[in-house]
Design a protein around this nucleic acid. Structure first.
Lengths: 155, 155
DNA sequence: ATATAATAGATGACACGTCATTTAATTGTC
DNA sequence: GACAATTAAATGACGTGTCATCTATTATAT
């Protein structure tokens, strides 16, 4: 190779590879309860932020920027979520987990914790902290960083 | 928050966020030459591995697992790549960059180097090395790791 | 009060990614 | 040589993600 930006290039592809591999891992586990990683993120966010609008949800999600209309479409069809028009301002749609959505949440927690446990088997807590600080630097001053902060992942 | 797997969970979302943000950055830059990040990866791989088959390409790509038939479809339509049936075994399709594809490659190099420079403005080389070692650990023993090795990104 | 601007969400269009299945070609076995 | 097994690629189906545009509703400006 012998390239000028060897490590930077490798970092680029490793980020992609880690994201793909992690997503696959999670996807295979979530498949058993019939939901996707994106849907699981929506359910988690709604569980912790009840009655928010579609737009607010968009601000909180990492998996998607902009308004997640279609992601919600599918989840409404699968009876995980209810869409409720705001009575005061009918431009807004408020989102609510259905009973089914609530039930999925506990399964999601278990599955996610399994994945987190795997991470902790590979990495020490200090390693994770340092890496998080480093990764956070790359997205500072972006909407994604704000989303993480609002979700409670501040540094 | 006060969760058991706080750092692990944060790591999960940071990986996703960094991948999204980086992809967007690259996407916006590549837009000017009319190609996508995935297409740029294909062009780079083909430049460095002439005349490989679709399947071999699949093994080398990080952006996609399995055979990238459709990704190549679009690139053939845009006259970036030629599909050539192998004369000895016509199950194989060999891929070749067109003149246009070759031309794009130099623009891609410039754009990628710009991104890598940005990374080096944020991170020291030691930080990148350590982070790469750490990220690599997560995908060890996967096909993605093999792909990176074959691409020349071994540790 | 009405015309205009701003806003939330829906939708069309496109490019991925992934999985399962199908098709076409070749290899191996008898 | 005929036929089953294997292999490479294509394809159908689905769920994202992203961007631009459209629609409906509310706020504002005069």
């Amino acid at each position: 190779m012998n390239k000028r930006f060897k490590e930077a290039e490798k970092f680029r592809y490793l980020i992609l590879a880690v994201q793909r591999h992690g997503n696959k891992l999670l996807k295979d586990l979530l498949k058993e309860i019939g939901i996707t990683p994106s849907q699981s993120e929506v359910i988690s966010v709604l569980k912790n932020n009840e009655n928010i609008t579609l737009k607010q949800l968009g601000y909180l999600l990492i998996c998607e920027e902009g308004s997640p209309s279609r992601l919600i479409d599918r989840m409404v069809k699968e009876q995980l979520i209810e869409r409720i028009k705001d009575s005061a301002d009918s431009r807004f749609v408020r989102l609510k987990l259905t009973k089914l959505g609530q039930e999925k949440y506990s399964s999601i927690l278990e599955i996610e914790n399994g994945v987190y446990q795997q991470l902790e088997n590979i990495y020490t807590n200090t390693e994770l902290q340092k890496t998080n600080e480093l990764l956070d630097r790359f997205i500072s001053d972006t909407s994604l960083s704000e989303a993480l902060n609002k979700r409670g992942f501040s540094c």
